[in-house]
Design a protein around this nucleic acid. Structure first.
Lengths: 136, 136
DNA sequence: TGGAAATCAGAACGAATCAGTCTGATTAGA
DNA sequence: TCTAATCAGACTGATTCGTTCTGATTTCCA
């Protein structure tokens, strides 16, 4: 139940990008400078976040990236799923995956989607605005 | 955001034990037989669950274990914390741990406890009774 | 128009955690 | 007192995660 470090960094990055939303696009170096995240890691995360549609990146000299959507429209669940993949607490809730070994006589399997939705709902109710809203 | 396999197995085990609650204590072999979990793994989990106070184990020939508390008083959060440790989505919400490297100028840190409580609350609201209630 | 610099994007390496197995200590029963 | 069955803890192998490095692409400047 611990978030991976990459997802944690991604949340910090997105929050930082949200604070720069009014300004022009920012580059990875600025993010690394402000947050303290190693630059290569920032670059890696930018790739994943932009391919997930959360960031809009511009390449070349003077390039950078910015939020593809308003901060209020980006939830924690979006960021986590962009980095870690679908939020599936167990293997049996992922559609198409049947490598549990316990299937067939598992009495708990039917209840996992309920649990999964509860957790995912809690993460989907938190957006970037509420995360960076109380900043100084 | 995926649960570890051990925690998943633990939930299945506890659910199976809850169904045998009215009967006498059951042993690890029966659990392995009914659930399909390998016997050594069941033994390992019994150790952790009993040391966490969720199971009451009796050693020696004819021994076994049973739920230490009523099924309604055991939540998913209890089981997960017994296997994986405290539910802390990030390192900074764990009291006493300060190995994040971003501390000091992290604008998101203040908001993680809120997220953590939301997720933990979703797991604490689900007990063993509701998990095994609709069984055939 | 050509060159150069800066950026993002993908691939490779090392480390840490996790899952599983095995052996030993303990205890009840005969 | 001896035997057998159980739980409890320690070890090994494998998978995944985190980080770093190198390369392809694009814009700006001369």
């Amino acid at each position: 139940m611990r978030l991976s470090s990459l997802a944690d960094y991604a949340v910090v990055m997105m929050s930082t990008a949200a604070r720069h939303c009014g300004h022009a696009q920012i580059n990875a170096g600025v993010i690394a400078e402000e947050t303290g995240i190693p630059l290569p890691t920032v670059q890696k995360l930018v790739s994943k976040l932009s391919s997930a549609g959360l960031l809009r990146s511009v390449r070349g000299a003077g390039g950078g990236f910015k939020l593809a959507r308003p901060a209020a429209a980006v939830s924690l669940a979006d960021i986590i799923e962009a980095i870690e993949g679908p939020i599936a607490m167990t293997a049996c809730v992922e559609s198409g995956k049947h490598d549990c070994g316990l299937e067939g006589n598992c009495r708990v399997q039917a209840h996992w989607p309920m649990v999964n939705n509860a957790v995912r709902g809690a993460l989907a109710n938190i957006n970037l605005t509420s995360l960076s809203g109380a900043h100084a």
